[in-house]
Write a protein that binds this DNA or RNA. Structure first.
Lengths: 167, 167
DNA sequence: GGATGGTTACTCGGATAGGAGGTGTCCGAGTTCTAAGGG
DNA sequence: CCCTTAGAACTCGGACACCTCCTATCCGAGTAACCATCC
């Protein structure tokens, strides 16, 4: 099993956007340059986040992306689900029914125990992922990371951040 | 993210093998027929389980596969790792270093906070998966599942199970 | 000087090729069972 | 009747195509800023 590579990019972008002031935006091209990614490709994942209601997009010049709600209310689970899709990782194909001896459907009303066990473990993962808030990620980064790295991140936000239109 | 389809087959096969008496084996072709899978393809996954030390293979006629240790000591994590590989689902590409401003490597001695958070959540999944023992799966199946289904599973084991060679 | 219209440039958005990894299949090496032949 | 031996059949094991999904890219639609023009 492996997660899509875009998950890492999506989380990094969301963390960067969390450093913006209220209403300001950063264009996707700047985010792509910040992480050395293809702008067109990163757009795909940012669109997924926007479609899931995690980001908001502002078109036109001076436009870009911003968080749709406070970083405290955004978990890593939200981002992973937005990028990877909501379906569970373990897909039960009901192969227990494919045997040579065909039993009536009534014999399979109880869910497959293997499926139950796998989804139970997966739920633990989702719970842990939901407990990881974006605000905590950002706070820990500012507290523990190397000062040069923090300064670079702040400089990036200050350089590419664009205030909200005053209309 | 999604798990390989073979994980489901591997767990079902392991559960079936758990119903064997000590030393007896079931050939891979019989397991494939039981779950309606391609024999050649199922062999690939059974080989992975054997390579990981979960199953043992016996060649020749009257050969097949059997559990390499007691079902109490086999967890779903063991099977998942054997089929999917040991590498974590979240792969950190260290894209934080790819920005236009190049910092010395000394600025990145601390691990990426996003990576830490993702692996922490993933560890919760692995812990939950390790707690799901194959013996529990089988016991719950015999206790809760439909009697017809249990009878069919027992009949399958009785029909295709082959006792250990007496040499 | 202020308002207005057109132009321009920049943004996001969706539709389109390429490639890695899982999926499915095949044939070969090894081992045991079987059966025939000889003692 | 028992032992030996050659054959055959069944098993696992690894190497080879196919196909789906992620990766990567392009071009088009829309919008706000900018600037020249007119009042």
């Amino acid at each position: 099993m492996k997660l899509s590579e875009g998950v890492e990019a999506a989380i990094h972008c969301a963390a960067s956007l969390a450093g913006l002031e209220e209403g300001a935006t950063i264009p996707g091209s700047a985010l792509a340059a910040q992480f050395g990614l293809s702008p067109s490709y990163l757009l795909k994942h940012l669109q997924a986040l926007a479609g899931a209601g995690i980001l908001e997009s502002v078109p036109g010049p001076a436009g870009g992306y911003r968080l749709a709600r406070a970083a405290e209310r955004i978990s890593l689970l939200d981002i992973v689900v937005a990028v990877e899709g909501p379906q569970p990782a373990f897909r039960c194909g009901e192969i227990r029914r494919n045997g040579p001896v065909k039993l009536p459907d009534a014999a399979y009303v109880k869910p497959c125990g293997i499926k139950v066990a796998m989804l139970r473990a997966e739920k633990a993962w989702r719970m842990a992922l939901a407990a990881e808030k974006l605000s905590t990620i950002v706070a820990d980064f500012r507290k523990d990371a190397d000062p040069r790295s923090v300064a670079a991140a702040c400089a990036f936000v200050a350089q590419h951040g664009r205030p909200q239109k005053t209309s």
